[in-house]
Design a protein around this nucleic acid. Sequence first.
DNA 1: CTTCTAAATAGGAATGGTTATAATTTAAGA
DNA 2: TCTTAAATTATAACCATTCCTATTTAGAAG
Lengths: 151, 151
Amino acid sequence: MNFQNLIKEFKKKGYKLTPQRRIILEILSEEKHISAEEIYERIRSSQPNVSFGTVYRNLNILLELGLIKQLDFKDGRTRFELNEGHHHHLICLNCGSAVEIQSCPFSSEVQKAAISQNFSIKSHSFKVYGYCRNCNYKKEKKGDRKGEQRN
Amino acid sequence: MNFQNLIKEFKKKGYKLTPQRRIILEILSEEKHISAEEIYERIRSSQPNVSFGTVYRNLNILLELGLIKQLDFKDGRTRFELNEGHHHHLICLNCGSAVEIQSCPFSSEVQKAAISQNFSIKSHSFKVYGYCRNCNYKKEKKGDRKGEQRN
DNA sequence: CTTCTAAATAGGAATGGTTATAATTTAAGA
DNA sequence: TCTTAAATTATAACCATTCCTATTTAGAAG
Ligand SMILES: [Mn+2]
Ligand SMILES: [Mn+2]
Ligand SMILES: [Zn+2]
Ligand SMILES: [Zn+2]
């Protein structure tokens, strides 16, 4: 969904279109996997008095509307992206960057396991942790690192 | 790994065996997917002056030793379990309970995607969100609910 | 264009899980 | 029993996120 459609969708739900909201939608349209703080900092360049409350409140509205998704890359902050096609991420344990992969491993075997438990599936999360192209390269000369993360 | 072996492993690494540590290992041996606060409350019944610092410090040591794993079920608190066989979870959006599934969906297709990106895989996380047997049953008479979570 | 007001924002305080600090206690080896 | 490095307790600090409320404003109505 592009910027203009986001605006339209937002107004259609009866929300007012404030400058702060317009900028948040702009930022989300042009950058994936962005944190609330990053959004806050960017808005400040045009709206110096914007508050964190405004950023979080609007991100939560966008989540309720289903226009964005929340992501957790295990670096202590929630990240956000527009709710476009289903995909997963390769997340670098060293630099925190994420590469998107379109391949989805959700299998009929998992489906069966859920059915056998009378569990009704609403969504799933799949993440791969490791070292990205760039950090692999650096490791060759600087020595190894370990990665611990919550699953 | 059972309780006695955990103790042995812990001492072998040069750590002192305190009563607090013994109890933490006991609790972890008998309960899966337990939070720091739950551990803290349980220890208090035999060690009333135990502090949160002790709980967190020792959980972090156990993580470093690779004896336990960290889990995130999206309810705001980190959970822990002994590092036994590789498995995944069906997580209930209503009651927060988790059912373990042995089926792992990690596929050669994902492997290929990683290779094509020069990404070296260290681990992966797969979680299924939905409603458990018990909450499904309740929903039939009480009306539906929605679930939003970080992926 | 002006008025009106429900909705939104700014600024700051509060929250909650987790980590850090420093004084005191203790496990365990000599 | 002595000794001491390591561990614990109690408390403060941290930090992402949420809450509170006085003030501002988008957009509807006249
Ligand atoms: Mn993405
Ligand atoms: Mn488990
Ligand atoms: Zn998928
Ligand atoms: Zn797996």
